[in-house]
Write a protein that binds this DNA or RNA. Structure first.
Lengths: 204, 204
DNA sequence: CGGGAAAAACCAGATGGTCGGTATAGTTTT
DNA sequence: AAAACTATACCGACCATCTGGTTTTTCCCG
């Protein structure tokens, strides 16, 4: 199988992502990536045209992975319960567990990292970041929409989608600052509690 | 007044903060700061020992400013209403308006910026960041505590404090991504709505 | 199935540039 | 006279990128 190159490429991406989330994109030298990935500089530039290309590839992979994870949890939640609102609540519990119940602290979100260095990147990456955030929001909204058939919601799903994104990003940040991943878990559960409170069964 | 030096120092800090929030700490060269602040390199190093010193001074000033702003809003809210819970809600409305009702998008938070480049900084700055986040949280908790005399709260104030921090940081991030500061305003108002829902008057 | 050419994957090293920081000597402002 | 700079030069480290060569893998032909 001709996947040796692919494996090296993935290793470069893994190492890069880890380093970037700790030091910021501009704070990571290619020399450092090359050293940690146990390749040479030539090897790096065989796989990536330049720094920008690395950034674009990283974000692409990150968003794809994230999308898959969220969709998996959504599917799981649908298999667990039938009621649309309960599915949303189950989904949020699964999400909280997935992100918050690991020992180590969350490594950070590439979307946040790149946003705080936005002027270093070209318009292609800005668009990737926007699409990513919008995609997360839409996944939540689509999952929550069926619940509107049987329930009234006091808040717009649009605002709730933004709120989930904000809580996630903010929760990751606070967890990193405190070195305590439990914060992230609890914050998602608080959001879940809020969702529970703003939905009311429709009076038939 | 012998504050010419102080004014230059402040100008350097202003320029640095603006640039860092756009490009990240590692992404900003001292040469660039020097150019934008219309001084020379010698002038820069007259005011700051080195890069680390700049970072520490920036964070120090940022936290002091932020602390003052929050305390002002808290005082304002106390002048507006008497009921402890209403004061918290008024405070959050004032906060939302202050941060969210400006035309331009929020420039970003230095605490978040530094956290996403944490490995670039020494332990002194890590401690500043931790203290900063804890300070914001404590200011909210102290402001909300009197409400517990007359009301029951279904959620711990500790968790609510973390939630406010998370919503703020996450809201700032989402606003920047979308280029729309209204998101930040609405997210703080959603948090306010949550606070309203978890507090119940005590049955005398 | 095996050898060999082509293509893919990777290495070693050089280049030109940038950056943080230092140093020095002088000038303006307070 | 002290504080607050300017002007300029310099250094060593670092850094992105390129060139040209080498190894490894693939795969096709016999």
């Amino acid at each position: 199988m001709g996947d040796k190159g692919e494996r090296t490429r993935e290793r470069i991406l893994d190492v890069s992502q880890r380093l970037i989330l700790q030091k910021g994109f501009s704070g990571v030298a290619i020399d450092e990536i090359v050293y940690e990935a146990e390749i040479t500089k030539g090897g790096f530039f065989y796989h990536f045209k330049n720094r920008s290309d690395l950034a674009r590839s990283l974000m692409e992979r990150y968003l794809e992975d994230d999308d898959r994870i969220i969709k998996d949890l959504r599917t799981q939640s649908c298999e667990l319960v039938d009621d649309p609102l309960q599915r949303v609540l189950a989904f949020l519990k699964l999400y909280a567990d997935a992100l918050g119940q690991v020992e180590e602290v969350h490594p950070g979100c590439l979307v946040a990292s790149f946003t705080y260095e936005s002027q270093q990147f070209d318009e292609v990456i800005h668009e990737q970041v926007r699409q990513g955030a919008e995609s997360w929001k839409r996944l939540f909204i689509e999952h929550a929409e069926p619940a509107l058939e049987t329930h009234e919601c006091e808040v717009s799903l649009d605002d709730l989608g933004d709120m989930l994104n904000a809580i996630l990003e903010g929760g990751i940040l606070m967890s990193r600052i405190e070195g305590n991943n439990a914060i992230l878990h609890r914050q998602i559960m608080l959001f879940r509690d809020y969702v529970r409170r703003v939905f009311h069964p429709k009076a038939a």
